[in-house]
Design a protein around this nucleic acid. Structure first.
Lengths: 213, 213
DNA sequence: TTTTTTCTCCGTCTCAAGACGGAGGAAGCT
DNA sequence: AGCTTCCTCCGTCTTGAGACGGAGAAAAAA
């Protein structure tokens, strides 16, 4: 019997997954959790071999939970099942030690197969996600803005909010000349032409956290 | 018996909803669909009283499907169940004639209650969504960029991509002076100070469609 | 200790941005 | 026929943006 735990803040999703996992003879659903913290407790208690984990949850995220769980149970296979495949979700999850990465569009068969593969030591990566991973490896390994200094990142966030140099200087308690220096460095590091493009970059690449969902 | 149809592109979500709807004696799940087009066919065939509809689906969206369905079956109650409550999702859905609006964080009880209420003619609106509706009604009834002209909207999209006036003039085959005129009008209509803030606005308020799922 | 990185600031210079006002033509509405 | 809206373009003028080069101080790495 493979012991499986289901973590998702949506009751309907948990019930959906469980409803067809219970029909599998070799799979035993040992518990469910609706948050990262609950998941950690659940895993320490029931010690499942496999955890199906949603990334986007109300309290904190599934990424921290994944990291935490693997710290205590390194052999636990965590399968991410989420709706998104943008870079800001995928890569932190992989880094945190997630074993497989699937989308919620997956069918019942695919989920069951992923669980069996996980126990056998074979990860399953969603094709669309795999594509992104290839691109990342091919292109640059990391986002351009990763070689910005702390201060430059702060300035970039201000630019991303639409501030001008005057406002940024007031916000960060530095001179306008200094702001200009930072801006110039940011533009050349991000390889963009002006602050407008930098603002677009910031808003599209997760430098600014928008509060959707 | 209340005839209910379930529309969602995620199999696990459909199964999850159905798994506890079938335990309700008065509810009869007459079918499920995984896309907008399937949903329309399904409704025309089975004529359910209530449709549980996801908004974000792979083929087209649930909003068009909602509109289409109500054109043929005006008495059908469509309950939106989705993960998001941002303006770009909610208001088009309401305008399309959705009856209730719930989030996927809803519990089994809440869904069942929403179905019964729908049949009785009472809509259920998720509190967080209701808040946004109140704000919309109080503040402005519609987004500032809704009174931009066609041409101004095109220019705004260019700004949102980070183009400068020169590039916009080449893109739209108009003079730079004309671009400047449009930009000035856009800035005053959106009530922002410069093109950078306009670009931020465009990227945050759905003027630019990003390809995240 | 020396070297490198980072943050800070200065002056100069060029140019795109944007405000302001004016204007002609086309299309649609009353 | 008038009126309004929209798109187009013009000139002028002010100012913020950004490039370029230089530089001092502090902190971290070598």
């Amino acid at each position: 019997m493979i012991k499986v735990a289901v973590v998702d803040d949506h009751e309907m999703v948990r019930k959906g997954i469980i409803s067809y996992l219970v029909t599998e003879p070799e799979i035993d659903v040992v518990g469910e959790a609706k948050s990262g913290n609950e998941a950690i407790k659940l895993v320490l208690e029931k010690r499942p071999e496999v955890v199906l984990m949603d990334l986007l949850m109300e309290d904190g995220n599934g990424i921290e939970a994944t990291r935490e769980i693997l710290q205590h149970e390194p052999n636990c296979k965590i399968i991410i099942i989420t709706s998104f495949y943008d870079d800001e979700q995928v890569f932190p999850a992989i880094e945190a030690g997630a074993f497989s990465y699937m989308l919620k569009t997956a069918t019942a068969d695919e989920v069951v197969r992923a669980i069996r593969k996980a126990v056998a030591g074979e990860p399953i990566i969603e094709p669309k996600v795999a594509n992104r991973m290839m691109n990342r490896l091919r292109k640059q390994e990391k986002k351009p803005h990763h070689d910005l200094t702390e201060r430059e990142l702060e300035v970039l966030m201000c630019i991303g909010e639409g501030m001008n140099n005057q406002e940024i200087s007031a916000e960060l308690f530095i001179g306008i000349k200094t702001v200009k220096t930072h801006v110039s460095n940011i533009l050349s590091k991000l390889d963009v032409a002006d602050r407008t493009q930098a603002a677009v970059y910031a808003n599209r690449n997760g430098v600014i956290k928008t509060n959707k969902h």
